[in-house]
Nucleic acid binder design. Sequence first.
DNA 1: AATGAATGAGGCTTCATTCAT
DNA 2: CATGAATGAAGCCTCATTCAT
Lengths: 199, 199, 199, 199
Amino acid sequence: MTSHRPLRADAARNRELLLAAAAEEFAERGLDASVADIARRAGVGKGTVFRHFPTKDDLLAAVVQDRITRLIEAAERLLDAEDAGAALLEFLGLAALGQQEFDQSFLQRSGRLSPEMTRLQKRLFQAIDALVERARDHKAVRPDVTGTDVILLMCVPNHVVGYVPDPPPDLWRRYLALIFDGLRPEAAHPLPHPPPESL
Amino acid sequence: MTSHRPLRADAARNRELLLAAAAEEFAERGLDASVADIARRAGVGKGTVFRHFPTKDDLLAAVVQDRITRLIEAAERLLDAEDAGAALLEFLGLAALGQQEFDQSFLQRSGRLSPEMTRLQKRLFQAIDALVERARDHKAVRPDVTGTDVILLMCVPNHVVGYVPDPPPDLWRRYLALIFDGLRPEAAHPLPHPPPESL
Amino acid sequence: MTSHRPLRADAARNRELLLAAAAEEFAERGLDASVADIARRAGVGKGTVFRHFPTKDDLLAAVVQDRITRLIEAAERLLDAEDAGAALLEFLGLAALGQQEFDQSFLQRSGRLSPEMTRLQKRLFQAIDALVERARDHKAVRPDVTGTDVILLMCVPNHVVGYVPDPPPDLWRRYLALIFDGLRPEAAHPLPHPPPESL
Amino acid sequence: MTSHRPLRADAARNRELLLAAAAEEFAERGLDASVADIARRAGVGKGTVFRHFPTKDDLLAAVVQDRITRLIEAAERLLDAEDAGAALLEFLGLAALGQQEFDQSFLQRSGRLSPEMTRLQKRLFQAIDALVERARDHKAVRPDVTGTDVILLMCVPNHVVGYVPDPPPDLWRRYLALIFDGLRPEAAHPLPHPPPESL
DNA sequence: AATGAATGAGGCTTCATTCAT
DNA sequence: CATGAATGAAGCCTCATTCAT
């Protein structure tokens, strides 16, 4: 997909350096991270950033695509797990871990996504839907919870940890556990509103 | 506190228009919302913003103070409610409702707050602590949940709704209910990480 | 001259307050002194400034006119003094004293002066020319020095004192003395350039 | 000092263009000269100014440092001249000539100077002190005149010429000569005030 | 007539993006 | 291809001036 001619070795390496640097910088500084800082962190010139990614937004999109691809792999792999509840929990853990502080803002901008990204997003959402359905079937998750709910709650652990001044690196596990307990059947009270149709 | 002489009628009106416009603009665009846009939305000139709020940060602070003050009132009033669990739930509902137009990100920046704001923040947090303690005493909330946990989760319902394209106005209730179910004793599983000490 | 209808008593008083405040503020802060500060110093509203002086430049012009008028009086009075050299020195002292720190910038803007100001300026210059001529006739001043030279050097004492951090209030007298010694015949060496024709 | 790697050819050229434009603009408009005007005069974009000088103050500092460095060289070189009086006069001439495009108002603000600038300023002042002392020893200058006096009077010739509408380019020589005659022993009258201690 | 609120042009600075080297 | 210099739009803020009260 979108397979342009293969990059020269050093160019490919720069691309990876940039993606890594951008991910870290966006994580630390938010979407206002400056291109200059990203370039510096990657050890390349500012111009090189724009050779690889015509736009700052494109760079962000590439970072997001990277993440989303890994999430798809994880989700699809976990569909074969034995314990459906544990599988869902693990997926959410991987999602939180992989995004340490990286705001899932790509969800927000469904509108402006590239076709490629839209495709990937859809595939991820389908995998999550399937994970949730299995967990629901196994009574690991309450029946009134949908895949969309889980998608929306997926980024909560990292988000709330962002409010803590110097957060311990595993603090997100606490909030993932709390959220997940809310998805279990045991404490389920009727939900006052139906789930949203689509994202 | 900070009660200067009463403003002229039109000035007072502009101040309110500005606070409202700023709250909306900050909610929609985040903290990067431009002063010019806020001024336009309020229907006043750029300079008028600075007559009322010498700095963009001051404007933000005023919006936040507005919100926080209402939250304090609600929390302290609900401390006298009969049903401690229902009181906590209602508080969280009021918080979500009031914040529909405003991301609670001010919690994040304890560092740069004015003394006045720090004072208000502390008072709000104490009231929430008390609400949670009462709810815990009444077994409406699991024993391993702290006030700080609730403070951190408080802004989740609105936050996740922000990811939904054209959200129904009451959708947040669904996610508040899910979160709250996670706080109940019934589904409690051991939490893998202690709560953060302070914010 | 420019005798509009006489001002009401309080208006006249405000005009004086403003002229005094403006003179001080311009002296301390330079031409960047803000109208708001002048108004505050005079104890009136900003709007009142503009009622009396349509423009900040007009206010400055009025201050200057005030000074220039007093200088004219002094110069014309001193034309009758016995000792022509002492008279010139005294005039320069009065000029420095009266302008304590007030930059003689009106000289600089001969172009944009009002007719009234041009008239006054011309009258002042004529009086100074006469003072210098008399001093020259009495051998108190070297023969190759003109009135224009003196006009140009008139503001030097205050100007250089402006470079001293916390100047003693009479420091300008030192530099006036040095300048004046340069005008005396005793040390006169040939001047390498003719005087400018006009200002 | 502060010798970074050599600039690219075009960048070096722009830096010089900017320094020249800034010197002219500051000379004409005073310290309020706008960065935009300086950029326009140099024929570069506004942003380029900030690439070379992060702050307007830094630009001013660079201009001043340029001037001051040349003055130091001149002063230290002239310390070896035979005729001490002629040396001082020549120094003042060079100062006036070099400053034709730049008001020496930086002397005024010892407070806000960078350490580097303070160092240079001190060195210049020491050299001038030495020049004056030698001239005094050779009876070329009256005994009651100090280096500080000369420093203060140094910028007078250009300053007064600034009041003349279309000044001939060498007019400053006339006023330097007049000032210098005031420093000679021949016309010395007792000075009514001691010199300032320091700048 | 006085006040001070409102206005908007203009100043300094940042930063995504373009382009000469 | 990579670099970093140049650009200019856009942001925050100040202040002379206008105008409703």
